[in-house]
């Protein structure tokens, strides 16, 4: 039987296209336009060529911020993913505690980012904060506003506190979906707990874990609000990540051209990494589907 060709459904996609055009494509085009021009305000622009791109590529300040950003993402992924899996493995699979656990795990995810920053800012203060005060009472020299290492540790702990639940919930969803037959087979074979994890649970969680890693990577690579509220990028420039640096350039110094060039390069890096993750994910699904 011949298939009827009917392309009218494409019209239903039209509103989305218009929305995306106005919310993403056109602003991005404007950024491209700005990145090649210089302005002194009054909506008057001068052609600057590749000057801003050269400046951004040669900028030590941005290179340092990129280094910090990569280090930050690597650290939080290295902590949150294993920790999230561990938490998911410890969560009950049935009974009344399931919903209690799920709600408790979801709580940090529901808090707005600037509130998370404020909570930790107060919590870690040496004079009135519970954490800061306790640490200093114990004789530990801790002050996140003056010491770079302390600031880093505080931001990392804050991020782990905020986002490990996401990894845990995703991993838990992966774990729950494993049919019990697999566990029964493992029991018959007298597989150890480690082998059950290595050969049954981990492969079955692969898909959701990739999504978790992608989401955490993207979010941590674009992190702004929490470190901004907590440390404001300090002490010095110790916790100035890419987005904080970008906002300083664009809004603080009102250098639209360099900021536009900077954000385009930032965007390209994120696009590349997301594409790699996406491709790996889709190909894994296909392999599993075979």
């Amino acid at each position: 039987m011949d298939k009827t060709v009917n392309q009218k459904a494409w019209f239903l996609v039209l509103p989305v296209l218009v929305l995306v055009a106005f919310s993403a494509v056109i602003p991005l085009m404007t950024v491209v336009n700005y990145s090649f021009q210089d302005t002194f305000g009054q909506n008057v622009f001068f052609w600057a060529g590749f000057e801003w791109f050269e400046q951004v590529l040669a900028s030590e300040r941005i290179r340092d911020a990129l280094g910090r950003q990569i280090l930050f993402s690597a650290i939080i992924l290295a902590i949150e993913v294993p920790l999230g899996i561990l938490v998911a493995l410890c969560m009950p699979r049935k009974g009344i505690w399931v919903s209690v656990c799920l709600v408790l795990m979801a709580l940090p995810l529901l808090i707005p980012w600037n509130v998370v920053g404020t909570i930790w800012q107060v919590f870690a203060r040496v004079d009135i904060g519970l954490l800061g005060r306790t640490l200093s009472e114990l004789g530990i020299d801790y002050n996140y506003t003056q010491d770079a290492l302390d600031a880093w540790i505080t931001i990392i702990v804050m991020d782990v506190w905020h986002w490990t639940s996401l990894v845990a919930l995703l991993a838990y969803a992966g774990l729950v979906s494993i049919p019990s037959a697999y566990y029964q087979a493992a029991k018959i074979d007298q597989a150890s707990r480690w082998k059950v994890f290595r050969y049954i649970e981990l492969p079955k969680m692969q898909g959701v874990l990739l999504i978790a890693i992608l989401l955490r990577f993207m979010d941590s690579f674009m992190i702004y609000t929490e470190p901004f509220v907590l440390t404001g990028g300090g002490p010095g420039n110790a916790t100035t990540f890419l987005s904080i640096d970008l906002v300083k350039t664009a809004i603080g110094q009102f250098d639209l051209g360099p900021a536009a060039a900077f954000s385009l390069i930032y965007f390209l890096v994120i696009l590349l990494i997301s594409w790699v993750f996406y491709t790996v994910m889709v190909n894994l699904d296909k392999k599993e589907g075979v």
Partner: peptide
């Protein structure tokens, strides 16, 4: 061309 600060090189790029 004033709209969105267009210039010919960027316009050609998008075209």
């Amino acid at each position: 061309m004033d709209w969105m600060a267009w210039t010919w090189p960027t316009a050609i790029f998008f075209m």
